[in-house]
Nucleic acid binder design. Structure first.
Lengths: 113, 113
DNA sequence: TCCATATATAGGAATATTCGAATATACTTA
DNA sequence: TAAGTATATTCGAATATTCCTATATATGGA
């Protein structure tokens, strides 16, 4: 694989690598939202949200549609949301395994006593 | 969703957000590799690779096994590789759509002439 | 045109990431 | 124990990211 392609992938992973931007994308499941919509739902500053939206726009993860005064954001390709789904599965699995390891350790320690 | 969970996800996305670390994970498809193995295959400096491997280790994306002198790295959960697969599909799709848009534009311009 | 509303951007400080060079640590073998 | 190989860590400079504050831009209505 050429490094330029990896670079493109890395930039999109980076775009997903911030909790606020993950929150933004989760809000965009199945709908579009204005900047003010994000402000209300996420309780963050308008400027800050605009900045994070700019990051997602730069990587073309989201697209915009202007309607009069407001700008509606939406996810360009829902494959991005599948990425978040996969990440959820991944994190859940790691946690489950960590719990299982703890329980296994406790069982072993009980047996030793 | 609590922000702490999003934070965990974001940290893993960040771990994937560098072309060298993507290259490392691709090399680990279906096998384990030593640090020197990465040096040979990727042609990067040993110290640099160790640093990137440390990032992946910190997020528990990879795990290590020491055998004598060497340290073997492997992917902890192959769901991570599915993430890379999904990202490949995503990038390919974006490129295809971009090409289609260009062709559509050319067709329209030809018609106008 | 003037004002209000919605959104974007610029500037600057704090923090984080990345890389190369140098050095430290771990293990093996003589 | 000394030397050699493999890997990890530290340091410092360069660059990037993030956030806040202030300001700019775009649009619609009076």
């Amino acid at each position: 694989m050429p490094d330029s392609l990896r670079q493109v992938k890395a930039e999109i992973f980076q775009a997903l690598g911030h909790s606020t931007r993950i929150a933004i994308l989760q809000e965009l499941r199945g709908r579009e939202l204005t900047v003010n919509g994000f402000v209300e739902r996420l309780g963050l500053e308008q400027a800050n949200l605009s900045q994070h939206l700019a990051v997602l726009r730069a990587r073309q993860v989201v697209v915009t549609r202007r309607a009069g005064n407001q700008v509606f954001y939406s996810v360009r390709d829902s494959l991005i949301l599948e990425m978040l789904d996969l990440m959820r599965r991944y994190v859940v699995r790691q946690v489950d395994e960590a719990v299982a390891r703890v329980e296994e350790t406790e069982r072993a320690e009980k047996g030793e006593r």
